[in-house]
């Protein structure tokens, strides 16, 4: 869905149209889920962070001057809230000692045992070897048919115009690994 269309939905939601709001939520939730999980949160915390971001959005609707920027706004809010959540959990939780590990890469939060399809398993093995940036990016663009690259760039602090090429490089690397793996097949 284009950023213009999303902007229109946001404007209608601002005028009280519940159906537009529902459409916006259904469209953007998969992306926001990916963003929260990419920050290493467990499923319950990630779900909570996603809805907190939406509540913040609705509270600040009148401050949003460019409705088409809604995707970027929500991704940024979700990343920030997820980061804070993880920080608090590490400090307060019983696993607080883990904080000593510093910025340990939480890894891709997928339970490999849940992947029953052989090709999924093979793909997962190689996907997990990509850099965090590649995993984040591919995980997000996989969720949307026409990803808003500028919103993703902004939210992840990457230069505008670099998302397309980075996505291309990440995907090419993954293809190369898959095609070299006999388990993937032709």
């Amino acid at each position: 869905m284009s950023d213009v269309r999303l902007g229109t939905l946001l404007e209608r939601a601002r005028d009280g149209d519940r159906e537009s709001l529902q459409e916006l939520v259904r469209e953007l939730n998969p992306v926001l889920w990916r963003v929260a999980r990419g920050q290493g949160l467990n499923a319950e915390d990630a779900a909570d962070v996603v809805q907190t971001s939406w509540l913040e959005l609705l509270r600040r609707l009148h401050e949003i001057r460019t409705p088409r920027a809604v995707t970027g706004w929500l991704i940024t809010a979700t990343r920030r809230e997820a980061w804070q959540r993880r920080h608090r959990t590490r400090r307060d939780g019983p696993a607080g000692a883990l904080a000593l590990d510093g910025v340990a890469d939480p890894g891709p939060p997928v339970d490999q045992r849940l992947l029953t399809d052989e090709r999924d398993r093979v793909l997962w093995t190689h996907f997990a070897r990509l850099s965090q940036r590649c995993r984040d990016l591919l995980g997000i663009v996989a969720q949307v048919t026409r990803p808003d690259y500028s919103a993703i760039a902004e939210a992840y602090g990457m230069p505008h115009g670099s998302i397309g090429p980075t996505r291309g490089r990440c995907l090419a690397k993954l293809r190369e690994m898959l095609l070299a793996d006999p388990a993937w097949g032709a």
Binding site: R37, A47, V50
Partner: peptide, 21 residues
């Protein structure tokens, strides 16, 4: 195919939209 399979890794919980709405 790769992107479709990646999208299926760790999908959002089925009740996420409902909880948000």
């Amino acid at each position: 195919e790769i992107l479709e399979r990646i999208a299926g890794f760790d999908p959002p919980p089925p009740d996420l939209d409902e909880r948000v709405l």
